[in-house]
Amino acid sequence: MKQNSACDIVQDYHRLWTSGNVDMAMNYVAEDITYRAPGTNLHGKDAYRSFISGFAPMLSGIGEIAQFVDGNRVALFYYPQTAATSTAPAAELFTITDGKIVESILIFDRLSYGPPKRN
C-alpha cells in the first residue's frame, strides 16, 4: 500500500478540518502533536482537537491556498474567512513523521479575528 506524501497528508487534513469535519481530520494527527499559535502552546491530540473544534465552526470559507513542501515539512498560506474578516492571512508549518502531523506552527493576526470594530 502506497504511503501518502507529507503534502497529501496536510492537504487532506486541512480540507477536512476547514470543511467542519474535525473528527476525520484528527486521523492525520499524532497523539503527541505539538501546536504553537499566537497566545497558544498545546501538546497532545485532545488539546489540539479542542482548539480546532472551537475555531472550525466560525469558518465561512478558505481563500487562496498556496503551499511549499520541503521533505517532511509543508507550509500552507491561506485566508481563513470568518464573519470578522476574509482578508487576514494565515501561515501554517506542519511537520510529518510516520504519516502523521507531529507539529504545527500557525502564524496569524489574532486581532483580525476578534469582534468587528464599532464606529
Results as ranks from 00 to 15, higher is better:
1 M>I: 12
2 K>E: 13
2 K>G: 09
4 N>G: 01
6 A>P: 15
7 C>Y: 13
8 D>F: 02
9 I>T: 14
9 I>G: 11
10 V>P: 04
13 Y>C: 07
13 Y>G: 00
14 H>C: 01
15 R>D: 12
16 L>V: 07
16 L>A: 11
16 L>C: 08
17 W>M: 04
17 W>H: 09
17 W>A: 03
18 T>R: 06
19 S>V: 05
23 D>T: 15
24 M>D: 15
24 M>I: 08
25 A>C: 01
25 A>G: 05
27 N>I: 07
27 N>S: 15
28 Y>R: 10
29 V>E: 02
29 V>R: 03
30 A>F: 00
31 E>R: 06
31 E>N: 14
32 D>E: 15
32 D>Y: 06
33 I>E: 01
33 I>K: 02
34 T>F: 03
34 T>W: 00
35 Y>F: 15
36 R>M: 12
37 A>D: 08
37 A>N: 06
41 N>F: 10
41 N>K: 11
42 L>R: 04
43 H>M: 08
44 G>L: 04
45 K>E: 06
46 D>L: 09
47 A>V: 00
48 Y>L: 01
48 Y>K: 01
50 S>T: 15
52 I>R: 03
52 I>Y: 04
54 G>F: 03
54 G>I: 00
55 F>R: 14
57 P>Q: 05
57 P>Y: 02
57 P>D: 02
59 L>N: 07
59 L>M: 05
62 I>A: 04
65 I>R: 13
67 Q>K: 12
68 F>T: 13
69 V>I: 13
69 V>P: 12
70 D>Y: 10
71 G>M: 08
72 N>W: 00
75 A>L: 09
75 A>W: 06
76 L>M: 11
77 F>N: 12
79 Y>Q: 04
80 P>C: 10
81 Q>C: 11
81 Q>K: 15
85 T>A: 01
87 T>G: 02
90 A>K: 09
91 A>S: 14
92 E>N: 10
92 E>M: 06
92 E>H: 03
93 L>K: 00
93 L>Q: 01
94 F>V: 10
96 I>K: 03
96 I>M: 04
97 T>H: 10
103 E>I: 00
104 S>R: 10
105 I>S: 11
107 I>P: 01
107 I>H: 12
110 R>H: 07
111 L>A: 15
111 L>P: 00
112 S>D: 14
114 G>S: 12
114 G>Q: 13
115 P>V: 13
115 P>K: 14
115 P>R: 14
117 K>R: 13
117 K>G: 04
117 K>C: 07
118 R>A: 08
119 N>C: 01
